[in-house]
Amino acid sequence: MTAPLEAMPTDWQSCLAIVAHPDDLEYGAAAAVATWTDRGAEVGYLLVTRGEAGIDGIDPSRCAPLREKEQRASAEVVGVRSVEFLDHRDGVIEYGVGLRRDLTAAIRRHRPELVLTLNHQDTWGGTYWNSPDHRAVGRAVLDAAGDAGNRWIFTDLADDGLEPWGGVRWVAVAGSPNPTHAVDVSEGFERGVRSLLAHRAYIEGLTDEDPETYCRNFLTGTTRSAASRFGGRPATTFELFPR
């Protein structure tokens, strides 16, 4: 795709980012988050799992607390103070009413204007197959953004004090093969690198490459690729769904 990307809206103050695993936000979106928190926006993270199945050489019982610790450190780098975990099982998240309810509850609790998630499509573009966890969570986020405002869905949530929230104005999907919008990350790039690098144990289990070199090369490649459609500016891309 070669059509120019539009700038992401900036007339909002609150965002909730919902993804499946620690590290999902750091492969690009965190650099944009850094630019948002710089202007005073409030961004919270909700992780559906603790990523316990993500490192082949580390047993899940030891991996979960390690990855949680890395995620909290990673969020701090880009100015995010609120990091929550839902404790669904890593690798076997199921799309369905239960997941939608959990995400609806979170959206009603945080009351964001912008909801951020990761690619829900079958692939990352071409034939590079996407994770079932990413697909399940991304689709459930898109649905829960609407469910949050419907008082006749999950009526028990209101009994727990979570009144309907119809204030979600957009859902932004990071890593989509069909991006429509972008954020200039010139100012947030270095923090994006450090934020990804905070997942050191995960990266060391993923590649033999020097972790900092790996992080910098990956983010340099993706932001430069987006620049060709965004006025030459290094950018993180999103597929934006208005509500």
Results as ranks from 00 to 15, higher is better:
Gly146Ile: 02
Gly146Tyr: 15
Gly146Trp: 15
Gly146Leu: 13
Asp147Lys: 12
Asp147Ser: 14
Ala148Asn: 02
Ala148Glu: 04
Gly149His: 07
Gly149Trp: 13
Gly149Ala: 04
Asn150Met: 12
Asn150His: 12
Arg151Thr: 00
Arg151Ala: 05
Arg151Asp: 03
Arg151Ser: 01
Arg151Met: 00
Trp152Met: 15
Trp152Gln: 12
Trp152Arg: 13
Ile153Glu: 12
Phe154Trp: 15
Phe154Glu: 01
Phe154Ala: 00
Thr155Met: 12
Thr155Gln: 13
Thr155Asn: 04
Asp156His: 11
Asp156Ser: 08
Leu157Met: 09
Ala158Gln: 13
Ala158Asp: 12
Asp159Ser: 04
Gly161Asp: 09
Gly161Thr: 06
Leu162Asp: 03
Leu162His: 14
Glu163Arg: 11
Pro164Val: 06
Pro164Met: 11
Pro164Ser: 06
Gly166His: 07
Gly167Thr: 04
Gly167Leu: 08
Gly167Asn: 07
Gly167Met: 09
Gly167Arg: 05
Val168Ser: 04
Val168Ala: 04
Arg169Asp: 02
Arg169Pro: 01
Arg169Tyr: 06
Trp170Asn: 00
Val171Asn: 06
Val171Lys: 06
Val171Ile: 09
Ala172His: 08
Ala172Ser: 05
Val173Phe: 08
Val173Ala: 01
Val173Ile: 15
Ala174Met: 08
Ala174Asn: 11
Gly175Cys: 05
Ser176Ile: 07
Ser176Lys: 11
Ser176Leu: 09
Ser176Trp: 02
Pro177Glu: 04
Pro177Lys: 05
Pro177Ile: 02
Pro177Val: 01
Pro177Asn: 08
Pro177Met: 08
Asn178Leu: 15
Asn178Lys: 14
Asn178Met: 14
Pro179Glu: 04
Pro179Trp: 05
Thr180Leu: 09
Thr180Val: 07
His181Arg: 01
Ala182Asn: 07
Ala182His: 11
Ala182Ser: 06
Ala182Thr: 06
Val183Leu: 10
Val183Arg: 15
Asp184Gly: 04
Asp184Val: 05
Asp184Thr: 04
Val185Pro: 01
Val185His: 05
Ser186Met: 09
Ser186Glu: 14
Ser186Cys: 07
Gly188Phe: 14
Gly188Val: 12
Glu190Thr: 03
Arg191Ile: 00
Arg191Ala: 10
Gly192His: 11
Gly192Ala: 06
Val193Thr: 05
Val193Ser: 06
Arg194Lys: 12
Arg194His: 12
Arg194Ala: 09
Arg194Pro: 00
Arg194Val: 00
Leu196Tyr: 01
Leu196Pro: 02
Leu197Glu: 13
Ala198Pro: 02
Ala198Tyr: 11
His199Asn: 10
His199Glu: 10
His199Phe: 11
Arg200His: 14
Arg200Phe: 11
Arg200Asp: 14
Tyr202Arg: 05
Tyr202Asn: 00
Tyr202Leu: 08
Ile203Gln: 02
Ile203Met: 10
Glu204Asn: 07
